[in-house]
Amino acid sequence: MTIRPPLSQAFDNWLGWLRHEKKASPHTIEAYERDVRDFLEFISGYIGGIVELEDLENLRLADFRAYLAQRRQGGLTASSLRRVLSSIRSFYKRQERDGYLHNPYLKTLRSPRSGARLPRPLNAADTRELLQKATTATEPLWVRHRDTAVLTLLYGCGLRIGEALSLNFDDRPVSHTLTLIGKGNKERMVPVLPVVIEAVEAYVCECPFPLDSKSPLFIGRQGRRLNARAIQLKMQNLRRNMNLPETATPHALRHSFATHLLAGGSDLRSIQELLGHASLSSTQRYTDLDVEKLLEVYDSSHPKS
């Protein structure tokens, strides 16, 4: 075993590894960092002292389970618990690779299971109304155009919110296609509707901050790259005004993109490419959604139901 560095140094090295070698997205890095910090805080209270790498090596299966149980009691869903466990494993994996610790128990810990949840898209009418209300909200004109442009990108191109907000000015859609780097550092090309280009250009014309080739496309009120939280809050206000369910999130617009394409006759392989799914099984959830809606109609209208 090599000489162990302080935990803080090992932690920073891990974050650098995620950022520069693994090319993880800023959203992933933020979530992983938050998860591991919370885990280390729990372990500090668990052992009653300052945590070092040696303490992490000596943890047993019951210790990891105790942490996950505490997070579950705090209201975390099974899917969130799986991400937490993935964060911790990533940190341990880097430390083991550097020869700082070895803990066989973490590898035997099973991920929490849950039933696969179907996407919850908006219907076409609600989507159109939501985009219209975003344009006519009460914020300053440039903010309204900015938020409308982001939401139109999510729905019109099926982007993840992190993909939309990571675009720089030179990456903005100006033609009928848009090339971007998505999850897993995968490049994909998506078609761009004229309404998407118009929404982005309307925002660019009103943006009070200078935009050059390397600047972020979408700017927050402080002049820095727009944070996803601003768009999440915008959707929260819109869904309250429209009496939409809590599932009406920015990501629901990506679900709506896929669902409406499927309903319009697009094949699953094409939708898989447009969404940037690594596996077709992820895209097949939208077929399950169509079946679910069909059964709902059957149950409500068939005379023998």
Rank of each mutant, 00 (worst) to 15 (best):
M189R: 13
P250Q: 10
E296A: 07
K183P: 09
G115C: 14
N123A: 06
F42V: 00
D170V: 04
T152W: 04
S44W: 05
L295E: 03
I231D: 03
R285H: 08
L294C: 12
L244D: 12
S111W: 12
A24K: 06
V192F: 07
N241R: 08
G45M: 02
I88D: 01
Y67H: 02
G264E: 11
S281E: 03
D126C: 15
L40G: 10
S279A: 13
G276V: 13
I197A: 10
E52F: 07
S8A: 13
D55M: 02
I3R: 12
T259M: 15
R83S: 06
L178W: 08
T2W: 10
L61H: 01
A69F: 01
A125R: 11
Q95I: 02
P112R: 08
L7A: 05
R285L: 14
N58Q: 07
K293P: 15
Q73G: 04
F64A: 00
R110D: 15
L167P: 15
F64I: 00
I88Y: 01
W142M: 09
D35P: 13
L118C: 06
R65T: 01
I3W: 07
L151F: 06
V36Q: 14
L180H: 09
S80M: 09
E41I: 00
D98Q: 15
S300H: 12
R285V: 08
E206M: 09
V150M: 07
L7H: 14
P121L: 02
L226K: 13
V204T: 03
A66G: 02
L15M: 04
L238I: 13
Q272R: 15
Q284T: 07
T249P: 08
L61I: 04
Q222W: 08
L56Y: 00
G99H: 01
L275D: 06
L178K: 14
K23I: 01
Y100M: 02
V297W: 14
N58Y: 03
H102V: 01
Y286S: 04
L81M: 03
T283I: 11
I88K: 01
R269C: 11
I271P: 12
L165K: 13
S44N: 06
S87N: 09
G182R: 11
S87E: 09
K22D: 05
D98T: 06
E33C: 12
N241C: 09
L15T: 07
E206H: 07
H277E: 04
R172K: 05
S213W: 11
A252D: 03
Q236W: 14
D35T: 11
I271C: 08
C157S: 03
R229D: 13
S90P: 15
N103P: 03
T28R: 04
E33W: 14
A149N: 08
N237E: 10
M189W: 04
R240P: 11
R144G: 04
A164R: 10
I161P: 04
M1R: 14
K304D: 10
R19M: 06
R254L: 15
A10Y: 01
L40K: 04
L131M: 03
E129S: 08
L141H: 15
V204E: 12
R160E: 11
L165S: 09
P245C: 02
T108F: 08
